[in-house]
């Protein structure tokens, strides 16, 4: 069940430092939304504020509204743990749990929450998630081996399998390919194209070709200078952003004229 996310007037702080200012955007269900922009402009910060991972950092806080299909994610009666169950996340560096096998990593979301599951159900979920992450054929013979023994690209797909195993509505990905080789990157891009039928996907990427290849909409973040807050400069269909952007800054960034 993919869901729509509406963000209005979002300000994101680290302590007193305003990192991202005034974001208004509507993220469509069953689509891939790419976020691009120079380093330090707040893409990760914005992404983490969508599933309330931002507030895990001491002193970090958020002002404004994030609404997912009518549910206010920052409402006073909303539990951040529930939000994270509905909005999964894949990180820049693959981070499988080192103490767990591949199998246990995939069902970590259920196991860690002590959900009771029959063995057959668990087996089924593991296979489904690994197939969903295009990893099943590579690891089906060594499900009981540690996840940290896989290659970087396989580890990242394991993390994706782990994220989709809890069946979230939205999947956030923060530069999921930046630590991977081109072949693994392609594998993950193919995977995203498949996953977008079931999930709302938001991906941060530094790779403009990647954004152009996979996404339906693209948001461009920028900041005026060091110490200034980052802003969402432009949000448009990907085709428009890459052919005929509204903003001069977007065009400069995309054509490599920045800094």
């Amino acid at each position: 069940m993919a869901k729509r996310i509406e963000v209005s007037d979002l300000n994101i702080y680290y302590g007193n430092f305003l990192a991202v200012e005034g974001v208004n955007v509507s993220i469509e269900p069953r689509s891939i939304t790419a976020l691009i922009g120079p380093s330090g402009c707040g893409k990760s910060t914005f992404l983490r504020s969508l599933n309330r991972m931002h507030e895990v950092i001491p002193g970090a806080r958020v002002e404004g509204k994030v609404v997912m299909d009518g549910q206010d994610l920052y409402g006073s009666d909303t539990d951040p743990v529930d939000v994270r169950r509905q909005i999964g996340m894949v990180f820049q560096r693959p981070n499988p749990f080192p103490t767990m096998s591949i199998y246990d990593n995939v069902i970590a979301g259920n196991r860690l929450n002590s959900k009771k599951m029959k063995k057959s159900e668990a087996d089924d979920l593991v296979e489904r998630s690994l197939r969903g992450a295009n990893l099943w054929n590579e690891v089906k013979d060594r499900l009981d081996r540690p996840g940290s023994g896989l290659s970087g690209g396989q580890q990242q797909r394991l993390c994706i399998a782990r994220a989709i195993a809890v069946e979230p509505d939205v999947l956030l990905m923060d530069e999921p390919c930046s630590a991977l080789d081109p072949i693994s990157t392609l594998a993950i891009e193919d995977l995203m194209a498949e996953l977008k039928d079931r999930f709302t996907i938001v991906i941060v990427t530094h790779n403009m070709q990647q954004a152009a290849r996979v996404s339906t909409s693209t948001g461009f973040f920028n900041l005026n200078g060091v110490g200034q807050p980052g802003r969402l400069i432009e949000f448009n269909p990907t085709e428009k952003i890459f052919s005929n952007p509204d903003q001069k800054a977007t065009e400069d960034y995309i054509s490599g004229r920045f800094g």
Partner: peptide, 10 residues
């Protein structure tokens, strides 16, 4: 690892 766990809704 902590963040990976939080992100799974743990």
């Amino acid at each position: 690892l902590r963040e990976a766990s939080y992100a799974l809704g743990v």
